[in-house]
Design a protein around this nucleic acid. Sequence first.
DNA 1: TATAATTCTCTTTTT
DNA 2: GAGAATTATA
Length: 747
Amino acid sequence: MLRVPSKEAVDALLEGLNEPQREAVTAGAGPLLILAGAGSGKTRVLTHRIAYLLRTGQARADEILAITFTNKAAQEMRERVELLVGRATRAMWVMTFHSACARMLRAEAHRLGYTRQFTIYDSADSRRLIKRCIDDLDIDPKRFTPRAMQAQISDAKNKLRSAEDYRKLVGSFFEQTVADVYESYERELHRANAMDFDDLLFRAVNVLELFQEVRDRYATAFRWVLVDEYQDTNHAQYRWLQLLSGEHRNLAVVGDDAQSIYGFRGADITNILEFEDDFPDATVIKLEQNYRSTQMILSAANALISNNRGQTVKHLWTDLGEGDTIKVRELADEHAEARYVAAEIERLVDEGVSRSELAVFYRTNSMSRVLEDMLVRAQIGYQVIGGTKFYERAEVKDAVAYLIFLLNPSDGGAFTRIANSPKRGIGQTSLSRVLAHAETMGISPWEAAAGADEVPTLGTAARRALERFMATMERLRERVESGAPVGDILEDVLRETGYRDALEAERTIEAQGRIENLEELVRVAREYDATAGAESDTAGVAEFLQQIALLSDADQLQDDEGLVTLMTLHNAKGLEFPIVFMIGAEDGVFPHSRALDEGGLEEERRLAYVGITRAMRDLYITYARRRNSFGAESYGLRSRFIDEIPRELTDQPDRNAVGAGRPAGFGRVASWSTAAAASDEALGGGGGGGGGAGAASVFRVGDDVVHAAFGDGVVTGVEPGGIVVVNFAGEGRERKLMADYAPIRRR
DNA sequence: TATAATTCTCTTTTT
DNA sequence: GAGAATTATA
């Protein structure tokens, strides 16, 4: 099968690459670290390297394992490689960590006591199970919230710590409790033949470590391992890669420590920083020429990130020209901010910019709401990435749970979800009895339900209802086993279980919406049948379910739809847009207060760096003086990140005028506030109250003050910019407030 | 057993 | 201010 490499074909692959890119593409065997600055063409390098390996005959397609961060990136990578080498490359493993592990585990999980039909639990499923464990253990869910337990357990798994390992390290009562929950959770997961996201990695590593023949097989097969976004790998992923590349040592990783933004999820930035320690013979290549952004944008990004310590030194440069200054705007509140963004988008579209060239980034998903309202009103088409709603809807989860239970009879969670949905007279009590029976007899929930006669204390009505239900399920299971298309099976499920009928009987708008969602799900299934089903021999319900479970937010992104794109900064990684708006640049929002509490300032800064470097041509940064976050209003201070951008790179060069000796609310000439006022006026919207005060901000350290929302406090600091630092008694912490706008007065 | 009413938490970011 | 979870009522 090896092709004779044609020199012309190989040369063509290297055309148009700069020197370091070319080095990275042609580097020979052995460990390879590519430090790729933002916009330096790392995807290009990866795809060309794969194509190069194939073209020169150094690799067969089935010897390549290429890991990306999202399914969408994987698909794109495959397409681009195929374009370069001019043929299909189905044998190549190009996928996310989680997909690759799931695929491996389908084949090997029986060694760990799972069947190949194991269910993948998303975080909501996992949290539900943890909640149940907490209840079963009689632990107070107020003191030990499922959320906190889940975070601890996830953290442990990412570090490859089993429940027993965790228990050995317990150092407090809290951790003691976590250990109990962790143990019980693991037992329940295993009993349900289910794995959570972290298990996919953890168990994959287990299999490779425990079974030499498995390790040998995969490590020999994958002669070349390539990893994108290496800075975001956690310890489990790191270990998995070590095991897989142990044989040939052809591990090529691409990443940028300045863009490491998943520390909160266990990503370990030292993986990339210490790559050279792991592989002293590694070839290291830096890609520093940026092909995306103007110099103005790059300089801002460079200046910002230089406030972080311990980054590897990179000098991003571009020859795309200077570009326009960064537009910074202060607005009265989040509505004014949204209005400003919408109006600016309208203006740009009028000028001939396509909506698909525009993106708005924010720190938290909830911030899209106000913006969406405004865009709808302005009739600007948009798409929101993330906050994945569709697969979280009850009706969609129900339909999926039916499919899961048909495949995995051990999944008590799925059974619980569907048994009485639609209502068929199997209530909470009967359900518990069936599940308890299953547990004591050591049989699956399916078996217990199917043999309802054997379940003691079950009422006659419940017994009959269960029999009918399980007869239907048996029929459907035969359909699944016959290998019918997923779309057909799903239709059968919705019809024969009476799910659709029950919704139709409701005759409400909401029910109609749910029916439409289910139709959408059927469409997705049919599409799966038509594409993945046609080309893969493993197609079927199991694969379909896996695909759904491992779908990431970023995967829903559509290109060239004539839509403005809205997403969180996290989802923006790896993307680029000619014009970018970053909104909500206020201390507390971004950097997020929770992150600050946990010492995550540097990661927040990297997040800002990611956001800024997505912009190709124009960058807008906005912040609001007042924001309604969570019932109450809060008064923010513009983000320190804005101040870390040299002011000559912005269109507000005189911002130091703010506060610095500003006479009581006047003399705001050339201050940030002027820009705010101007933009509010330009938009014809009053922008609400906010500014009114104007009273001299004559607070002094030691003053006793009272705040409308936070209550009594004492001034502990006065900062330039009309800022007062107040320690509020009720909260036991300090807040920074803008004296001119915050509703505080001296007591 | 099912629904309605009411209380309570929650907002970081996500595979 | 919304969604889930809990409690009260039919």
